[in-house]
Structures are given as C-alpha cells and as structure tokens.
Design a protein around this nucleic acid. Structure first.
Lengths: 209, 209
DNA sequence: GAAATAAATTGATCTACATCAATCGGGAAA
DNA sequence: TTTCCCGATTGATGTAGATCAATTTATTTC
C-alpha cells in the first residue's frame, strides 16, 4: 500500500467496514461482477444515527431506499392525540423507508428514528432505480423483497383482525425472537396496537384469571 | 367473415367479451404490440364462478395470478373457532390470489370465493413469469401494483392499530365507496375485525351515547 | 307467492383492554 | 455516590366492543 495520510486511511477503513455489512448481504443474495459491486458502492451514502435521531420526519418527502447495517430503527405515525403508532421495526440487514412518500414524492405522514445508535446505507430513489435497471439480478432481488414484505404485512393484518392481545404478543416474540429484547416494551405495545400497561400485565400474569 | 357454425360464433364472441375487460385494463396501463397482446391472451384462462363458489380452498396450493373481470370476491382465513376473517375484497379490474402460497408452493391457509357470480382471467405462475420476462412493460406494471398493494396494506395496518371501530368503518366506506354497497355487512365487519352486531350499531346510532 | 333460509337489528349482559394514577426500579448525568 | 428521569409495574375503575339471544327484515328457493 502506498503512503496515504493517516486521516484518510482511517476514513478509508471506516467506510469499508460500514459498507461491508451491506456488501456481505448482497453477496449472500446475488452474484455480482466487481464492476457491478463498484457501481452500487459508488452511489451509496453512509450515514450514522445517534439513538433517537430522525432519519425521516413527518412532513418531509422521503428520498431514499435505506438499508440498516447496524442498530435498530422504527417507523411510526403520530395521531391527532399525539400517540405514536409503530408500523415497522428494522434491524441489521433490513430495509426501511416510506415507499409511499418515495413513490409519489408526497410529504410523509411517517417518522423513522433510531432506537439504538445506527448505521445505514442510503440510495437516492433515482440511483436505486438506476441500479435496478442496470443490474437485473439486483432488481429481481428487490422485487422479491417487496413481494415478501407484502406477505408479511398481509399476515400482520390477519393477526390484527383475528387475535387477542396476548396471542399477538406471543406471535411477535416468536417472529422477532432475534431482536425482540432490544426493543422497549412500550414500543412493542405500540406495534401491537395495545397499551404498555396491558402488555406489562400480559407479560406478568400471562393474563391472570 | 367466413362461414362459421353459429355455436362457434357464440363461443367466439362470448370469449372475446369476457377477455375484453382485461384487455381494456392492459390498454389503459401499458402500450403493447399486437404480438404481445396475443402472447398474453394465448396463455390466459377464462373462468366463471357462481356465487359462493371457491377459487381457492384452504390446504390447496395456489397456482395462479387472477384478474377479476366481473363480480366481487373475497379472500379469508378461518380460525380454530371456525370464524372467518376476511383480509381482502376484489372486484372488477382487481387482482386476487395468495402470493405466499404461489411463491413458496405451499398449501394455502386462505380461501377465495365469489360473493357474486364472477368472471376471472387466470394465468398460471410459470406463464405469468414468462409474460413478465418477455414483456418488460408488463413486468413493470406488475411490480408497480405489488408496490402499491404493499402501501395499501401498510395503511391498513396503521388504521388497525390506531383507530376505533367506527373510524375504521368510515374509512372503509370512503376508500371503497364504489363497491362497499355490494358487500354484505357481516363481511365488512369481518374485514374490519369487528362483530356484525357492532357494525350494525355503528351504522344506526352512529354510536349512540 | 308462500315457505324456508339467511342477514340485519335490537336488547341485556359480559369482558378484554383502556384509562388514570400512584409507585417502583435501573441506568444515565452530575 | 446521589439525583434525576424514564420505563415498567400495579391497582382501581371505566368503556368499547363482544357475546348470547330474540326478533325483524331481506333474499332465496321451490
């Protein structure tokens, strides 16, 4: 390696490591040439977020597709009474964003913020589309993800209209076992559409009779 | 027109008319060459359903993408108490199917049946993929639809965790004004995750105090 | 067009979950 | 350490919506 100022070396290694999680994700999903990898990397935007920091705020237009490489985030709406309703959690190797706002370029009704210190890889809408059109395998991967997310949402709708608070909570624990303990109880309650007090009671008594 | 036995003429016109709704839908969405149109038509399967007839029954593997050209259908799950939970309504110009079962080729946990006498255009999974790969505009159209459906589902999840029964009902009426009156009240209640009695009370008193 | 069947309404009562309020941690800041 | 603050717990009570049951009103079916 030739001589590089230490400050740049630091930056170089830092960036490489942050991006690595995303590169590994891609490698697991699809086979890409080095040129293709470089194309994707060249338009990626790395961003760090402190706990509680917003990635998107209600009223802003969402411009990206975001991939989480570290930490845990939530997406939520705030109703007229000021109550937060969480519609999505994302952790490492999950995508997050407001597709509706991105698609229509309309102000978002949603917020996205960091539950823990986070690192994300961002792609602007146009760049993301560019990647999709130039790399069919990437495009197919994206469509597979959206398709799957559609199914996940459909199952959540079903459980929402058919299950009790306790059943929903147990389902949640099972489905998101790998990161459920990283999320404050009150947020899980919000995600399930129940009150924190109710969730606490469920967890303790497991509904005392 | 050359001589054709009248029975065949009837069949010919009949089939043409049934398919027409779908063709018009395509024409509104994308520009296709005659060859492309013919390709799509050549693999389409026309099917008529009597009211209450199943298009998909729980336990079967769903093999199609289905487009409704006439009538009204519902997709629902039946829980262990035998209660039906409707997760989707479809009418003319809507797609319907169990993407999860189709994708994974696993037995479906869902049922699809006809609320009214219906006509549908079916494409087998492989044929549908073939069309998508041969006609990029078609593929893009499909992805746009799935993307939009994803958003619709996300909004439904939000309303499910944040709104009262009455609010959900009013939202439903507004969102599906064009066909809401064609759907029995008990089914709307099922879709909203409330009981028919509750919906009846909401409609009358509009919650009497 | 009557009989049979299914859907919607209405009333009385019950219950899962919400609400309000007080208390109890346990981790961050000073 | 101590203070502070936020999240979780616990209790008492309220309420939206469920449940059960009886009619009434539509819709099929013959």
């Amino acid at each position: 390696m030739r001589h590089i100022p230490s400050s740049l070396i630091f930056t170089y290694f830092y960036k490489k490591n942050v991006y690595d999680t995303f590169q590994q994700y891609l490698d697991r999903k699809i086979a890409l040439t080095n040129d293709e990898k470089e194309l994707i990397r060249s338009v990626s935007i790395l961003k760090k977020l402190r706990k509680k920091q917003y990635l998107l705020q209600e009223g802003d237009v969402w411009k990206y597709d975001a991939f989480i490489t570290k930490g845990c985030m939530r997406m939520y709406a705030v109703d007229d009474k000021g109550i937060e309703h969480i519609i999505y959690f994302g952790v490492e190797n999950w995508w997050i964003g407001d597709r509706e706002s991105l698609l229509n370029q309309t102000p978002s009704r949603l917020n996205i913020d960091a539950i823990e210190d986070c690192e994300v890889v961002l792609f602007t809408g146009p760049n993301f589309e560019m990647i999709c059109s130039k790399i069919p395998a990437f495009r197919d991967m994206v469509h597979a993800i959206i398709s799957k997310s559609f199914n996940v949402n459909q199952n959540r709708i079903l459980s929402g209209i058919s299950k009790s608070a306790e059943e929903k909570y147990l389902d949640f624990l099972q489905k998101y076992a790998d990161f459920a303990m990283r999320i404050p109880q009150a947020m899980i309650a919000s995600y399930l559409g129940i009150k924190p007090e109710t969730l606490s009671r469920i967890r303790n008594g497991i509904t005392k009779k």
